[in-house]
Design a protein around this nucleic acid. Structure first.
Length: 339
DNA sequence: AAAACGGGGGC
DNA sequence: GCCCCAGTTTT
């Protein structure tokens, strides 16, 4: 199965030559701190490097160590993650910090099989930690590696995941070079071997690529049907505070605070503050934001929160956006009053 | 095996 | 406006 590789030595050489002046200078590549690397791996799950960077910097400033994270309140942790999505990652990282902080040496296990037993660590992250933290010779299979090696080998991406990947192990150098190699392939996948329009003329492996040699077109992924739903959010103000309640729409936004849905029985609708749409997984949600009042006492679990408090609470981005509609409105009112 | 989980950036 | 992302967990 490895005949098409030609010369692994030569392939590695071409890759390094390409990478020499194109390596991304990422903060988690400049550190040896296991915690810092683990934070980056959690943030990078299903999230682009460019999106992660500012969150990573802020996070490391706020929670610089396992202990600082372990002792932080859940709410503050989620607030720091707000906007990155997949919030279970933050909850799991928090759990992991508490686990590590409770270990005698405050050390992570080095074995991927052991790492996988810990919260938020699956097959990819276990191997990424083993590779990037403990310098073991591992292959963290992420979408970059699947795409690059899938194309090189000319196998269908989906069957490639199931099929033997042993030839990639032949390519993977030993020792410290394994890290450089994987980093290079990830950079290649991110900048050259793009999902839709790969820039093959820039690729150091162009002449090794079976997909390219066959002149085949590249994969297209089947997409899920989009569902459109409506949502009416209520902005209920009292003495400068707004009503928020614990999110409880299934499992989404667990432990977050939400603006309440407008309820015809308990609320009076006042002004329409605005409309916008947001997408979440396969839903397209059309939001109408209403200023509203309780008819009597507030219904259901919740609390009043003034603007400084709202800043500290974890809120889903669309709800934060809805809130911004009134706050902007009030700022305008205030400035016009002053005049 | 498939669905759920978020949000933003790039084209 | 659609596609995709340094995946994991639940169903």
């Amino acid at each position: 199965m490895s005949h098409f590789l030609g010369n692994p030595q030569r392939m590695r050489q071409k890759l390094y030559q390409w990478h020499r002046c194109r390596s991304w200078d990422l903060p988690w590549r400049q550190t040896q701190d296991p915690y810092a690397i683990v934070v980056s791996e959690f943030m990078l799950q299903q999230t682009r490097v460019g999106t992660v960077l500012p969150y990573y910097e802020a996070w490391m400033a706020r929670f610089p160590t396992w202990d600082s994270l372990a002792s932080a309140a859940e709410e503050e942790v989620l607030r720091a993650w707000e906007g990155l999505g997949y919030y279970r990652r933050a909850a799991n990282l928090h759990k992991l910090a508490r686990w590590v902080a409770a270990q005698p040496g405050k050390l992570l296990p080095e074995d991927p099989a052991e790492l996988e037993k810990l919260p938020g660590i699956g097959p990819y992250t276990a191997r990424a930690i083993a590779l990037f933290v403990f310098r073991r010779r591992e292959l963290p299979w992420d979408s970059n590696l699947y795409r690059v090696f899938g194309r090189i080998s000319g196998t269908d991406p989906r069957s490639f995941r199931q099929s033997s990947q042993s030839w990639v192990w032949e390519l993977l150098p030993s020792g410290d070079k394994a890290r450089d190699f994987v980093n290079a392939v990830m950079d290649l996948g991110r900048t050259v071997c793009l999902p839709r329009r790969p820039r093959c003329s820039l690729c150091p492996w162009e002449r090794f690529c079976q997909t390219r040699l066959r002149g085949e077109s590249f994969l297209t992924t089947p997409r899920q049907a989009l569902r459109v739903t409506d949502e009416e959010l209520a902005l209920i103000e009292s003495e400068g505070s707004y009503w928020v309640s614990p999110c409880q729409r299934g499992k989404r936004w667990q432990s977050f605070w939400c603006l309440p849905d407008w309820q015809t029985d308990n609320m009076t609708r006042l002004d329409l503050m605005g409309r916008f749409t947001y997408s979440v997984t396969r839903y397209r949600v059309c939001v109408a934001v209403w200023k509203a009042q309780w008819k009597g006492e507030p219904v259901g679990p919740g609390r009043w929160a003034d603007p400084p408090t709202l800043e500290k609470l974890p809120l889903p981005r669309p709800h934060r956006r809805a809130l911004a509609l009134v706050q902007k409105d009030e700022l305008l009112l205030e400035s016009s009053r002053k005049r």
